[in-house]
Design a protein around this nucleic acid. Structure first.
Length: 254
DNA sequence: CCGGTTGTTCAGCG
DNA sequence: GCGCTGAACAACCG
């Protein structure tokens, strides 16, 4: 479920409940689920991997973490973390983390960071990245304050598509290459969404979980990179680790 | 059948 | 107070 595009799919799946009144809210969550009983759903919003159910004075933030799931008008065997009942219909959420947000969401969320949002701002992303010169690009891509919604799959694929080595330091990335990475974090996320909806996401992976580079047939390495220590798949032949040593730059190519 | 993981938070430590 | 590590959570896939 978890990366940003999957949360968009969730939003679309339950869009029909927007404007509806919750007849009953129940569940085994730690917070006061019943607070939502009788409330009307004003809107659904998303920010990165957060799914937000908006009410008049507060919102519920749902994070599906690694294994969260949901069902519309269906039950799983396990008890739901919480269930919302409408007239003749219901939504069930399982294995998710919940939190209430009081007041305006604009006070909590920087919408310019969300790669799936129309307000995503590449310049704002660049300014935040510039403040982390010693950071590794593989960690930066997973930083939700910069690229909300990007998860480990998107990270791997964006680095492959832009031919950038995951352990490149931010300060060593050429400006145009950085522009490419920022733009592709958004572009690939929309490709991810399109392919996920069509159930063909996996077959479009070029580096993630792959053994061989589709560009040059060199082996794809697997390494737990950076501070985040997440699985990272990359080709050492075509993904450039900047700065490129001077004696490796050919003076007269071809 | 068991190991690994599309994610995040928090306790505990030096 | 900090950064780092490991645990915890949880369910499905291969």
């Amino acid at each position: 479920m978890p990366e940003g595009p999957s949360i968009i799919i969730l939003k679309e799946a339950i869009q029909k409940f927007k404007g509806k009144k919750i007849l009953q809210a129940e569940g085994n969550a730690k917070l006061d689920i019943e607070r939502m009983s009788g409330q009307k759903i004003i809107d659904f919003k998303t920010w990165g991997k957060h799914f937000l159910i908006c009410f008049k004075d507060f919102s519920l933030r749902i994070h599906l973490m690694m294994f969260g799931t949901y069902r519309v008008n269906e039950e799983r065997e396990a008890k739901p973390r919480f269930k919302l009942t409408f007239v003749n219909e219901c939504i069930n959420f399982y294995a998710c983390s919940l939190k209430y947000i009081e007041g305006e969401l604009d006070d909590t969320y920087d919408w310019t960071a969300d790669v799936m949002n129309d307000d995503f701002n590449p310049k704002a992303a660049r300014a935040k990245i510039k403040k982390l010169p010693e950071g590794l690009i593989c960690d930066v891509l997973l930083n939700q304050k910069i690229f909300a919604g990007v998860g480990n799959i998107i990270k791997n694929e964006v680095l492959f598509r832009t031919r950038l080595h995951p352990e490149t330091l931010v300060k060593d990335i050429p400006p145009r290459k950085l522009t490419e990475v920022i733009n592709d974090a958004r572009d690939y996320s929309f490709e991810f969404l399109k392919w996920k909806k069509a159930f063909v996401l996996k077959k479009h992976w070029q580096a993630y979980t792959k053994k061989k580079c589709p560009r040059d047939s060199a082996p794809i390495f697997k390494k737990y990179c950076g501070k985040t220590k997440r699985r990272t798949f990359f080709c050492e032949v075509c993904q450039v680790l900047y700065p490129v040593a001077k004696n490796k730059v050919r003076k007269n190519p071809q």
